[in-house]
């Protein structure tokens, strides 16, 4: 479980200060920059989980320009646009058409925290998850995001033990507990794209590094956490053939 690292682009010092303290209070790690050049520099040096940026920097809509530039570079980071006016002109002028989250100034702490949840949901196309319940997670290639009290935290996917289908969606079982993911199993598999996660059954995606014992005749896998995962004929064959679990 890790803090989210947020890049804040805000040229107004007072507002920046207010936001930094708000974010710090909620256990978010913040890096503040006051112009787009610095922002780009920081982005090229290290990884951020999110960018919160004022649309108007020095009276110009540089925020959107930056967002567009990052999109073109293929940088996949959730954005939150800060604006004091609920006017669509600026977005239309900049022809920014991707799904985005925005926050109207002035805002209260709840709105701010909610918008962070929305930004992650929107970016990973898993709406109404984090913002709806604390037991729902958003899955990304390296991390999955969950809510810890009021804030969002990220958890490394290596801590996942297995993922199990539940009706339309899936349950993610990790060392911390169980979360609902509003995606199909195949979609999750696609997002993770990780050879450690292998399907043993139509309804199960297992982290092979977390297997304790296997009872092939009984079609049973015992995980390190003593969870029992079943095998099914078709998946067992390919699973055994690859032989990845014999280490």
């Amino acid at each position: 479980m890790e803090q989210l690292h947020i890049l804040l682009l805000e040229d107004d010092v007072a507002e920046a200060q207010e936001m930094i303290s708000l974010l710090n209070r909620n256990d978010y790690l913040v890096t503040h920059v006051s112009n787009t050049a610095d922002a780009l520099k920081k982005l090229h040096i290290q990884h951020f989980d999110m960018i919160i940026l004022d649309i108007m920097i020095d009276g110009k809509p540089q925020g959107i320009t930056l967002a567009k530039q990052l999109d073109m570079e293929g940088t996949q980071i959730p954005f939150i646009f800060l604006t004091s006016m609920q006017s669509r002109t600026v977005f239309e002028k900049a022809k920014y058409t991707k799904p985005f989250s925005y926050l109207l100034k002035p805002f209260n702490e709840m709105e701010f925290l909610y918008t962070i949840e929305l930004a992650i949901e929107t970016h990973y196309s898993q709406e109404n998850t984090l913002s709806m319940s604390a037991t729902t997670a958003v899955v990304a290639p390296e991390f999955f995001f969950v809510k810890e009290r009021q804030k969002v935290v990220k958890v490394n996917v290596t801590t996942i033990i297995y993922i199990e289908v539940d009706n339309k969606y899936c349950h993610l079982i990790c060392e911390r507990g169980s979360y609902l993911i509003k995606l199909s199993l195949s979609k999750i598999k696609e997002i993770l794209a990780n050879p450690d996660f292998r399907q043993t059954h139509r309804n199960y995606l297992v982290n092979v590094t977390k297997i304790k014992e296997m009872y092939i005749e009984d079609n049973l896998i015992i995980m390190e956490t003593n969870h029992k995962v079943p095998f099914s004929g078709r998946f067992k064959a390919t699973f055994l053939k690859d032989g990845l679990f014999f280490r």
């Binding site: 669509r88 977005f91 709406e127």
Partner: peptide, 15 residues
């Protein structure tokens, strides 16, 4: 803003 049809308006399914 609304009268000038300039209100940013994104209806979405939410709670």
């Amino acid at each position: 803003l609304e009268q000038r049809k300039q209100l940013l308006f994104q209806p979405k399914v939410s709670s």
